[in-house]
Write a protein that binds this DNA or RNA. Structure first.
Lengths: 104, 104
DNA sequence: ACGTTATGTACCTTGACGGGTACGTAACGG
DNA sequence: CCGTTACGTACCCGTCAAGGTACATAACGT
């Protein structure tokens, strides 16, 4: 999850979600200098979120979305909770309307 | 998403997923000192992830899971991707077995 | 009113991390 | 070979946020 903390990282991931891209192409999307992007890519690579294949001089990165399934799983613990919460909110809103009509 | 970056924050959220708890109770779960927890709770509160109600001297925190739905939505972009990827992996594994039998 | 309990806040220190610059290094094209 | 392209890495610096300590504050119980 740590690897997802940075804004630039997520931008890279968003881009890679569209399809594979070289390091240079990814760097062009970010406001930071190219070496910075290389570092981000390293982190993402070590986190197992992306993978590289060499293609001539270019290094083409692509998404390895499996690890995000872990985050998804973590969120799963809350999903039921917020769904029931949202349901509760709906009925609460209805109740609130009735009460506001009588008292207040 | 920033509010989820810290390990302690997630621990607090995990605890609150079990049910409401006071600041002190939450602090007991963390390796850090109590004031630190108070600060974390403030961040979570300002991020809208938790809410407080005063109960005597105690301040009881509870989860407001709605905002996590946003993260869930963000992940949604990848969910389809990794599911198709995992499917591809399965067929790849099958194909790999066949190839390993013949060549290699 | 006074001590106690439960909690937040102010202030400071330190460590981690993002970013830039300069440099090293493979893979090509001639 | 030699220049160029496309990267990565080493080193340095500034910022920022987490954590600790000390202090302020509010709600009880007596």
């Amino acid at each position: 999850m740590h690897a997802l903390a940075d804004e630039s990282r997520r931008t890279v991931l968003n881009a890679l979600a569209e399809g594979p891209a070289s390091a240079g192409e990814l760097a062009a999307l970010l406001p930071i200098a190219r070496p910075g992007v290389s570092r981000h890519l390293r982190v993402l690579r070590e986190a197992g979120l992306v993978e590289v294949r060499q293609q001539a001089q270019r290094r083409v990165y692509s998404l390895r979305p499996e690890p995000l399934a872990e985050v998804d799983e973590w969120l799963g613990r809350y999903r039921a909770l917020w769904e029931q919460r949202l349901d509760a909110l709906h009925t609460e809103v209805a109740r609130g309307k009735r009460e506001r009509r009588s008292s207040r």
